[in-house]
Each structure stands twice: as C-alpha cells, then as structure tokens.
C-alpha cells in the first residue's frame, strides 16, 4: 500500500481510475496498528478492483482536517474522485473493512 500525503493525494486518490480506499492511521493508535498488516493483505487480494492507500495522520493533519477525519482508524471510500462512504472507530473489524472494499469494487 502506498503512503499518501497532501502532495500525491490528488493524483493517487482523486484522479484514480479505480475506486480507492484510504486507511487513516496514526503511530499512537493501537487499533490502527493492529489492523494495518491485515489491511495490507486485503490490498493485495483486491488489487485488481480496488486501490488501497494509507495516510499517516500524524504527518498529515491538514489533509485530515480537510477530509474531516477526526477519529482513528478511519477508512474512506472514493469513487470517481468523490467520497462515497466511510467507516470509523477503534472497534472496526477487518471484516467490516473487507465489506467496505467489496461495496465499491
């Protein structure tokens, strides 16, 4: 999964041909760190249909504020450059994330 920041967000997410899921995580968010390796696996499994990228909220506060992400972990689904769905909360399960991926695949 590529790391996205304010510089490449437009190119990687908004202008993507494929639907995109953005995983917002942070170094002090333990639930995020638990999920990351499992999300990496999903990213591999669904790579033909959906692109998964991640944003480290710690270095990208402005981007988070712009997208109104104020809670971690958050997963935002983009289709044709527009946010179509999001899920958030420290009790998110990998299953819910997979369902989000499937819903836009």
């Amino acid at each position: 999964m590529i790391e996205v920041n304010k510089d490449n967000f437009e190119q990687e997410v908004i202008n993507s041909n494929k639907p995109v899921i953005v995983d917002f995580w942070g170094p002090s968010c333990q639930p995020c760190l638990e999920l990351l390796p499992q999300v990496e696996k999903l990213s591999e499994a669904y790579k033909d249909k959906v692109k998964l990228v991640k944003v480290n909220s710690a270095g990208n506060r402005r981007l988070c504020i712009k997208l109104r992400v104020m809670g971690l972990p958050s997963f935002l689904a983009f289709k044709n450059g527009k946010e179509v769905k999001r899920i958030s909360g420290q009790d998110l399960t990998i299953k819910e994330i997979e369902e989000l991926i499937k819903s836009i695949a």
């Binding site: 942070g26 002090s28 968010c29 333990q30 639930p31 995020c32 909220s57 710690a58 506060r61 988070c64 504020i65 109104r68 992400v69 104020m70 809670g71 971690l72 972990p73 958050s74 999001r86 958030s88 909360g89 420290q90 009790d91």
Partner: peptide, 30 residues
C-alpha cells in the same frame, strides 16, 4: 466495551467529534 451515552447525535458524529479513544484521536484536537 465503552458504554455509549445513548443521546441523539452520538452515533452520527462518531469519528467526527465523538470519540471513545483518547490515544487514537487526541492529536486531532490540538
């Protein structure tokens, strides 16, 4: 698990101002 307040708005604003995890989300509130 954290007990929810059960008041209007709690679920709607989850991840947009309502949080149950200070270590996860604290830094957004600089």
């Amino acid at each position: 698990s954290p007990r929810m307040l059960g008041c209007p708005g709690e679920i709607d604003f989850r991840g947009r101002g309502v949080s149950y995890c200070a270590t996860c989300d604290g830094a957004f509130y600089e």
